[in-house]
């Protein structure tokens, strides 16, 4: 039985460590840390004792069945949901009820939504430059320069003066990515970014995300796109019923999953 070279600590521990010789992206510095995070919706517990550390420039892909808490988890990271127990620390700032902390964290964390959520009453360029101009207080020229750069990065600079309603789904999502990037975040969160897209538009968005990963952005991606996970992820996290069930490198995960729950899920989707 061939063991993937990534298996450093043996295959029967819950966690596997990425020992890849190509350890270019791992720098060891923790950007996001979740310790013992619980989240309740009324009596229903959506997150059960989540412990997760994400290192700088790491790409973490979270997969799992619906209702497993994956979206809830990343929404807790930028306070779109409020966690009930445990600690969440982003780039040294602890997430609490302190408005200043929340705002600081939100400035450094960018989010891309499943439903894009572009502002329909503004042009594409205005969507992208709104954050830098209002929050970082940049002047219009600097903001638009950066905005166009970001639009070029996602390969739709020519749409800058159109309105979101005039764009296709794939283009809208790429604008959403550019909007998040324009804030120059340290971390990018993706909440099922391709789930609302027609199949022929998924690849253009995934390409943008892959380019982002290659350029060294720290990313947490909730998705069903297994190809993306295999290709780009440094670590894959499998969640079910509000808990982290298994974590590992893509090789470990897809070729040698340990937990029964993981095997069941993979058998259903692959």
């Amino acid at each position: 039985m061939s063991e993937p070279s990534a298996m450093g600590n043996g295959g029967d521990s819950d966690a596997a460590v990425r020992v890849d010789a190509d350890a270019t992206r791992a720098t060891g510095e923790t950007v996001i840390s979740c310790e013992g995070v619980d989240k309740f919706f009324g009596d229903f517990q959506a997150l059960k004792d989540i412990n997760l550390r994400v290192g700088r420039q790491e790409v973490v892909v979270i997969i799992g069945p619906s209702g497993s808490g994956k979206s809830t988890l990343i929404r807790c990271i930028n306070r779109l949901e409020k966690h009930d127990r445990g600690r969440i620390v982003v780039d040294g700032v602890e997430m609490s009820d302190d408005v200043r902390n929340i705002q600081e964290i939100r400035r450094e964390v960018g989010m891309v939504f499943q439903q894009f959520n572009l502002f329909p009453h503004m042009t594409v360029l205005d969507n992208v430059t709104l954050g830098p101009r209002l929050v970082r207080r940049w002047n219009k020229k600097k903001a638009e320069e950066l905005g166009m750069q970001m639009l070029e990065r996602v390969k739709i600079p020519e749409q800058a003066h159109k309105y979101p309603g005039q764009l296709s789904g794939g283009q809208q999502q790429r604008v959403a990515i550019a909007r998040a990037l324009a804030m120059q975040p340290k971390v990018m969160l993706f909440d099922e970014p391709t789930s609302a897209l027609d199949p022929e538009m998924i690849s253009e968005v995934l390409d943008a995300m892959k380019e982002l990963a290659r350029s060294g952005m720290t990313m947490i991606v909730v998705t069903h796109e297994m190809g993306f996970a295999r290709e780009v992820a440094d670590r894959v996290v499998f969640m079910a019923d509000g808990q982290i069930v298994e974590v590992g490198t893509p090789q470990h995960f897809f070729e040698n999953p340990q937990e029964e729950r993981t095997k069941l899920f993979l058998s259903q989707i692959l």
Partner: peptide, 23 residues
């Protein structure tokens, strides 16, 4: 524990008392 590459690993931590109940 830190692995060879310095990335922290996740070890199962025993759930604190009163876990499973809303605060």
């Amino acid at each position: 524990p830190l692995g060879p590459t310095g990335i922290a690993t996740e070890e199962p931590v025993p759930p604190p008392e009163g876990a499973g109940l809303p605060p």
